[in-house]
């Protein structure tokens, strides 16, 4: 068994000539909840997308669950089954009901029989508090409901780690908490989570560790205590003072 579920070594990522991620180094251990914070354009989302191979990297190493994501021999389709990914814009499939959104991948990828997939989907919908929406289409749901369906859809693949890319940024304020509550519950159940977020309250309360990213570099890393109350780096201090005063 590996010590880390996610291991990133000297990761460098460019978009053309633009150096987006610079010598990123960090680990996530099993069951840990890590929040990645930083200003827009600091590379947080890109970093997350490098972890499940949605973005290729130019140098360094990304190892998830013992598999080198950037290796030649990697079976990304297989690896991605163990990495749940939640997007800012939900990306539910609009032509399918909520239930089918959730059952599609288990049926087609894991070859789960339809009935079992549906039972699983209903259980997960119950978990996110949306059992009654199973036969609705995504367009009939609020943003917060859509994001909870997206979480259920990811969980249906029984992932070992869940990644969240600003999961509440596109939501109406009144629905943010429903999503955060589901995420808290997941964290309490011991799910390993990496969360790119602007929700400082969530980062402080729920995460075990916070990584502060600035201009493509990890500027500071520590427990919520350390980051929020005793930031060592002046840039972290500046960022936090801006965010918290708002």
């Amino acid at each position: 068994m590996n010590k880390w579920i996610v291991e990133v070594k000297k990761l460098n990522k460019y978009f053309g000539k633009h150096h987006v991620l610079k010598d990123i180094d960090f680990h996530v251990s099993y069951g840990e909840v890590v929040a990645i914070i930083g200003a827009s354009g600091s590379g947080k989302s890109t970093l997350l997308r490098c972890l499940n191979g949605l973005e290729p990297i130019q140098s360094g190493e990304v190892i998830v669950d013992g598999v080198r994501v950037n290796g030649r021999e990697v079976d990304l389709n297989k690896l991605r089954q163990s990495i749940g990914m939640i997007f800012q814009s939900f990306n539910l499939f609009p032509h399918m009901t909520v239930l089918n959104n959730i059952t599609l991948a288990p049926q087609k990828v894991k070859k789960l029989p339809r009935k079992e997939a549906e039972e699983l989907a209903l259980t997960l919908l119950g978990k996110v508090g949306l059992k009654d929406k199973a036969h609705m289409y995504p367009s009939q749901l609020s943003g917060g409901q859509k994001q909870r369906v997206a979480i259920a859809r990811s969980l249906a693949m029984n992932p070992k780690v869940m990644m969240f890319d600003e999961p509440t940024s596109a939501l109406d304020p009144e629905t943010v908490n429903d999503v955060l509550d589901v995420m808290k519950e997941l964290a309490e159940e011991g799910m390993t989570m990496i969360v790119v977020t602007h929700e400082m309250g969530f980062a402080r309360e729920v995460s075990n560790r916070i990584i502060y990213l600035d201009d493509g570099k990890i500027v500071e890393e520590g427990t919520p205590e350390e980051i929020f109350y005793r930031p060592r780096n002046p840039r972290t201090r500046e960022f936090l003072s801006k965010i918290i005063s708002v």
Binding site: Q81, G84, F87, A105, A150, M157
Partner: peptide, 15 residues
């Protein structure tokens, strides 16, 4: 069709 649809499907392990 928005790129996010392909990304969401691939992220679930689909080919």
């Amino acid at each position: 069709i928005a790129l996010g649809q392909m990304e969401a499907a691939r992220s679930l392990g689909m080919t």
